[in-house]
Design a binder for these strands. Structure first.
Lengths: 339, 339
DNA sequence: TTGAAAGCGCTAACAG
DNA sequence: CTGTTAGCGCTTTCAA
């Protein structure tokens, strides 16, 4: 039993293809008897109009492409979830690709999407792309007049709708909070120092220090590469002239930091306060539970999907591009002192 | 600057569409001068063949549809990751939909996929579908002769390729392990008692008890619904005639159980051993770290993608359907005693 | 009330 | 070497 087409139905009934098409679409132009017969037949044989043909005709696919750097990262999983929920609600499907932080994979995917496969796309830049700072492939995509929304890891060089986390303010306020609870030597541990997001957080952190008359020291800004030994790096912070707070820029690192601090027999939060970014599944369950900055990933996804679909469906009136700044919240738990 | 087509190029050069097509595809039939000119022009204008048109023509989309019940569940995230990696490696793209455990959403998605959108599909059943035990929509899909691979949550009523975890053996061996370390009263806490997977694990558990001459008691089989109070349910296990081991059938529950047991001032693992299913990100980081059953999600995804693509690309020779049984591993950590 | 024809963008067999 | 034609599956005028 192969896939049945209008042609097949037409020939079994000895009528033309267009008649069948109209009958199936319940057109008033067709006699009700014939319509009934054809519709019944179609139902019995599980006729489904071929989407590819329809898309080609309509020049619309009702799908949106999503490019995330890494689906195993819980923040992106949450955003992805938000996008999917909203897109589905508004009648769109998702086609997704992970770049695995690779610049080349990103280019390939963008090319795929720009070939008529999707009505619009939502993406967050790969780490490699941000490090290279090369977004020519996206400029071309924009040239193709396909709507695009960037989120979280965005580029100034591209003019399009954006949804970003207020990372500057998040780090600024979080650092301020630590200071208010009595911390004076606050370190930052970052695995994402190449990304726009990582840089903004460092800036916010520095601003807070400055405003409170605390000096920034280079040794407090710890950059962790993939195969660095975090334990060793933290020794420099904890052994002599120890810090009294550590802000980790992602969840896994926050948990790692917590474990290492405990291993060194420092009391959390009495001796060292710990706070992390991305409120995922880990932080609530470790002990002491970690204070975290929540970025509201699901909401970001929903927002991005809405902006994209709005633009897809209003292609006539070209609205100016906008950038939504999503506020974070500090989820206070047991790893920081209270004011 | 709209999307450019062969027609546009043809008219600017005053040649026919097919000439342009051949030129762009570097056919030997075209003079090298003309080819050069056309190719240059195409490059300058970022010409990309319309995928929709190609797909319609070739009757192949080089995409595979993936349906998972819940992307926020780390096991499914891992499988998804595995599918994507393998599919990309073999030249396929992924179009994904989450059912959110809903039967209706599953039907809708399957219908979408069966309309020529994908070359094949990979799915794991929604909880609702398994509870209803109604898979008519999948039978229809199979009727459309589109290759399908089911994984993890599968149905006996459908004949297709499958990749499943050896859940029976996993629970059997895990229970055996607990018994070997001296546990005698072993409880199971399940949130997935409706699913095929959940049932198999209970069966394996019972078999192990039986073989070691331990009696199964109904009160040891705890079924947790969404809004049940786990703490209360565990009281019945821990307060009088307390159990000495608890096997949780998912990771979140394992962590919850651990926290509740600690709250009740029971020593883990001395008084109560705890073991959970799905080795995700949580279990390593809690204290004591949890012993977990790893299902090798990424590997399952890769396997499923391979089976599907093999079938897509060998549609001529109809191989018999096969079911791959993936063995689990017990990752021993601090929440269980050693033998 | 039905059908013929054109066209979405592309390729490929076949002529010229 | 280049062009004509047909066709992938469908909708939509426009004729009959």
């Amino acid at each position: 039993m192969k896939k049945i087409t209008l042609k097949d139905i037409a020939s079994t009934f000895g009528v033309s293809i267009s008649t069948v098409s109209k009958a199936i679409n319940d057109s008033h132009e067709i006699s009700s008897e014939l319509k009934a017969k054809i519709q019944q037949f179609a139902k019995d044989h599980h006729y489904r109009p071929n989407r590819l043909a329809l898309n080609l005709l309509k020049k619309s696919t009702k799908t949106i492409g999503v490019i995330v750097p890494n689906i195993l990262n819980y923040f992106f999983t949450q955003v992805f979830y938000g996008i999917e929920q909203m897109a589905n609600k508004r009648g769109y499907n998702i086609i997704s690709c992970t770049t695995n932080e690779s610049y080349l994979k990103e280019i390939k995917t963008v090319e795929l999407f720009s070939a008529g496969t999707v009505d619009g796309m939502i993406l967050s830049l790969a780490e490699e792309t941000q490090a290279k700072d090369d977004v020519e492939h996206l400029k071309e995509f924009m040239g193709a007049r396909i709507p695009m929304v960037m989120f979280d890891r965005v580029s100034d060089k591209i003019e399009c709708d954006k949804v970003i986390v207020d990372d500057f303010e998040a780090a600024y306020k979080t650092t301020g909070h630590l200071i208010k609870t009595g911390c004076r030597k606050i370190a930052v541990v970052s695995t994402i120092f190449n990304s726009s997001v990582g840089k903004l957080r460092i800036d916010g952190y520095k601003k807070a220090l400055e405003e409170h008359g605390l000096a920034f020291e280079e040794r407090l800004n710890v950059q962790v590469n993939k195969d660095d030994d975090l334990e060793l790096l933290l020794s420099f912070l904890l052994d002599d002239d120890p810090v009294d707070a550590i802000m980790a820029l992602d969840e896994m690192t926050a948990v790692d930091v917590l474990n290492i601090v405990k291993l060194k027999n420092k009391a959390v939060p009495e001796e060292v306060s710990i706070v992390g970014f991305t409120n995922g599944r880990l932080s609530k369950y470790v002990s002491p539970a970690l204070t975290m900055v929540s970025q509201h990933g699901k909401y970001i996804g929903e927002m991005a999907a809405n902006m994209l679909i709005d633009r897809i469906e209003n292609e006539g009136d070209d609205l100016p591009f906008s950038t939504k700044l999503i506020k974070t919240s500090l989820i206070e738990r047991a790893s920081t002192k209270s004011c």
